[in-house]
Design a protein around this nucleic acid. Structure first.
Lengths: 215, 215
DNA sequence: GTCTATATCATGATAGAC
DNA sequence: GTCTATCATGATATAGAC
């Protein structure tokens, strides 16, 4: 059943590399294909055989580049996380508009995920089966969600203080809500085959966040 | 790795039965155990062997009650869905408070999921790997999310008209946001091992929905 | 209704030739 | 770096005894 997809789609996010050595051309193709498939089907439903078939190579070749599936998963997730975190622009306390730009930089890497049918965020997909993943990956997952919330709360709070954002309650609570809504929206978008679901949720969130600008 | 859990936890939701014949005692134990495990690890990471081990029986016995894993999944998901939908109380157009009660009835079945460590909503877990599931289950999933949104939007809109709820924009958009936030919050709660995450998101949502009552 | 035994298949992974 | 060949394991599922 894991092979019952009819049309694989290429995803162009997350090609950046993590701390360690850059990936060779083949390794990158493997990582891209794996990432794309996991975002559609989940970690446990993608096999080396699926990747090999898609790329027209043998599973042994994949094992040469990535000896273990857990290692491949960690590489892909690290790259995906770094792509997001590197996008986050710093704020300038003296420039209110920098908070809006920071928010935009946060949302930018999400767009490619939004625009692909049949996928949802890698973090969310892995989080759904968290307990089945190796401790390394569990740790990357958990710490990203925490870091994301801390960063968002800082931007939201500073932006509210400067009058560019509007929401009630603690900034950490609003950040938790925002991150949760994005994850859930991608998940429901995928489950209902309705790309618009995600767009509508973002519209609703932003109409709240920027409410004064629209009055 | 699917067996690396140290302490299975019992869940008491979703014991209600669907349209067809009620489950025998053993069948119900199997369904409960399977549902609980799937909410922790996902459909593809739970095997008949895992269930058999947990219950102290053989896999062949499980096949007697549920010939196929897809069938077991459909039974469990149908039961889970009915448990939610049956909780939804009708509104009385002449009674504004009935809209608050309807909202409470919607949230009630979510509490047990909130209170269990290491699990997230069955809909969300299955949605994350949607493409790997049989068409039957995919359909139940997709239609539930749509029905949920329609019901929520109706309650939100009626409640806003009567002054008990407060939000801006179309009720369908707010319903989409609400459903997404709940799904994402459970997912992040599980991924970060932080039960409070879910509570905070609900607090934030309700402080928005009931804002006037708190001023 | 539950069991033993078994069939069949896919999986992650390794050894060693080229 | 890629291949063929192979291994060990665990999965779904079935047949038939009790």
């Amino acid at each position: 059943m894991a092979n019952s997809h009819t049309s694989e789609q290429k995803i162009t996010i997350g090609r950046e590399q993590s701390v360690c050595c850059p990936l060779s051309d083949t390794a990158r193709k493997i990582a891209d294909t794996f990432q794309n498939m996991v975002m559609q089907r989940g970690f446990n439903a993608v096999s080396y055989g699926d990747i090999a078939k898609e790329l027209g190579i043998r599973t042994a070749s994949i094992h040469y580049h990535f000896p273990t599936k857990a290692g491949l998963g960690a590489t892909v997730l690290t790259r995906y996380r770094d792509n997001f975190k590197n996008a986050w622009e710093d704020v300038d306390a003296d420039d209110p508009e920098s908070y809006v730009r920071a928010y935009d930089s946060f949302m930018a890497p999400i767009c490619p995920v939004r625009d692909m049918d049949g996928v949802s965020c890698l973090f969310g997909v892995l989080g759904a089966t968290q307990k089945t993943l190796c401790p390394n990956i569990q740790e990357i997952l958990a710490s990203f969600f925490v870091e994301q919330e801390v960063w968002l709360a800082k931007v939201f709070e500073g932006g509210r203080d400067r009058g560019v954002f509007h929401f009630s309650g603690p900034a950490t609570s609003f950040a938790k809500l925002y991150a949760s809504a994005l994850q859930g929206a991608m998940l429901i978008k995928k489950s209902t085959n309705n790309p618009k679901h995600f767009d509508v949720v973002i519209e609703q969130l932003e109409s709240m966040l920027f409410e004064a600008d629209e009055k």
